[in-house]
Each structure stands twice: as C-alpha cells, then as structure tokens.
Simulated scan of single mutants.
Amino acid sequence: MKQLLVFILFAAIFCWLMFSPIYKHVLVIRQALLQQEVNYMLEIGASGQYGYIDGDMIAQSRQRLAAYGFNPSLLEYEVSATNGAEGGNAAAPLPRGEGLLLRLAYPYERLLDIDRLIGIDPPSAEARIGGRGIRMSEYVP
C-alpha cells in the first residue's frame, strides 16, 4: 500500500515536472503576443493619419490574434485618452500631444491547472493576462 502511494505521488510530480515548463512557456508567449499587438495598435492608432483606435482596428486585431490561437470573443479591449476624451472616436481624433491608452486582456483559460498536482492554486477564472501601453498622438488636423 505504501509503495502504491509513493508511486502515485511520484507520478504526479513527474507529470508536473515534464509538462509545467511547456504551459509556462505558452503563457509567456501569449503575454508577449498581446503586448506586441498593443504596441502595434498604438503605433498605428497614434500616427498622424488616425489619432484614435476604433472598432474596425479592434476587429482587425481580433482577426490577427485569432490566427495565433486566441479566442476572439474572449479578448477585452479598453481604449482611452489622457485628457479624458474617448480614444476610439474616429469623428474626434486626439490632437497631437495627447496620450492614447490601450489595454488588452485575455483569460488564462485553465492553462495553469496542472499546478494543482503539486498544491499550487491556479489563477481564478476572472484573472487575465494582457498588455497595456500609452502613446502620444501625432495627429494634426
């Protein structure tokens, strides 16, 4: 009986040691892709041509991230501006010098549930990974 218990505990720890680094690597890659997308969208949105990040840009971003395996319906975008104006309004682009803020979040999707094997609680269902950034608008009317 004792040997069976030792075998089960050893098997659980062995599985965790084998697969945990892979899941952690996937988590790091997802977070990096989200931050890269935030940087790209801020670069385009804050350019002299736009001065905003609207719904069409967000829809294109969802498509780009879907190509990497993200579920587009779970992506959360939050666009704002440093002056309190709406950063996603194409009719009123942010003038030059105002900050355009973007926050992009995505759930963990039970990615770290394997950590339960060694007694570590995974992040809650409401927890999110993501990226955020700010860029000064270059739009001149």
Rank of each mutant, 00 (worst) to 15 (best):
Val79Ala: 07
Lys24Met: 13
Lys24Ser: 08
Ala66Phe: 03
Gly45Tyr: 00
Phe19Leu: 15
Ala85Tyr: 01
Ala105Cys: 11
Pro122His: 02
Ala11Gln: 05
Lys2Cys: 09
Thr82Tyr: 04
Met18Val: 15
Arg116Val: 15
Phe7Asp: 13
Glu86Arg: 13
Ile22Thr: 13
Met136Gln: 12
Phe14His: 02
Ala90Cys: 07
Ile44Tyr: 02
Pro95Leu: 06
Ala32Ile: 09
Leu102Asn: 01
Thr82Ile: 03
Asp56His: 08
Arg110Tyr: 07
Tyr23Ile: 09
Gly99Asn: 03
Tyr139Cys: 08
Ala66Ile: 08
Ile44Gly: 04
Asn83Thr: 11
Arg64Ala: 11
Asp56Ile: 11
Ser80Asn: 08
Ile58Val: 15
Ala32Trp: 01
Asp115Asn: 15
Val28Lys: 10
Asp56Trp: 00
Leu33Cys: 06
Phe14Cys: 10
Gly133Phe: 04
Asp121Tyr: 05
Leu27Trp: 05
Glu43Val: 11
Ile120Asp: 07
Ala125Gln: 15
Pro21Trp: 06
Gly133Arg: 03
Gly69Lys: 03
Asn71His: 02
Leu42Asn: 01
Tyr108Trp: 09
Pro123Ser: 00
Ser20Ala: 15
Leu102Val: 10
Ile118Trp: 04
Leu9Tyr: 07
Gln63Ser: 15
Gln49Gly: 06
Glu43Gln: 11
Glu138Ala: 09
Gly51Tyr: 02
Arg96Asn: 11
Leu74Val: 09
Gln35Tyr: 03
Leu100Gly: 00
Gly51Cys: 02
Leu75Ala: 07
Phe7Trp: 09
Ile44Phe: 01
Leu104Met: 01
Asp54Trp: 00
Gly131Arg: 05
Gln3Asn: 13
Tyr40Lys: 13
Leu117Trp: 01
Ile53Met: 01
Gly87Pro: 06
Asn39Glu: 11
Ala46Gln: 03
Ser137Gln: 05
Ser73His: 09
Met57Ser: 00
Glu86Cys: 10
Gln31Glu: 14
Ile53Lys: 00
Ile118Leu: 10
Cys15Asp: 06
Ser61His: 00
Ile22Gly: 02
Phe10Gln: 11
Ser73Ala: 15
Arg132Tyr: 10
Tyr40Thr: 14
Asp115Pro: 06
Ser61Lys: 01
Ser73Arg: 11
Ile13Arg: 05
Ser137Asp: 03
Ser61Trp: 06
Ile13Glu: 05
Ser124Arg: 12
Leu117Gln: 01
Asp56Gly: 10
Arg62Phe: 00
Gln31Ala: 12
Gly55Ser: 14
Glu86Trp: 08
Met41Gln: 12
Arg30Met: 13
Val26Cys: 05
Ile129Gln: 00
Val38Asn: 00
Pro72Lys: 06
Asp54His: 01
Gly45Asp: 02
Leu101Phe: 15
Trp16Leu: 08
Leu17Gln: 00
Ile120Val: 15
Gly131Phe: 00
Ala67Phe: 10
Pro93Trp: 04
Glu126Leu: 12
Ile22Leu: 14
Leu102Trp: 04
Leu5Gln: 13
Ala59Gln: 08
Asn83Asp: 14
Pro72Thr: 09
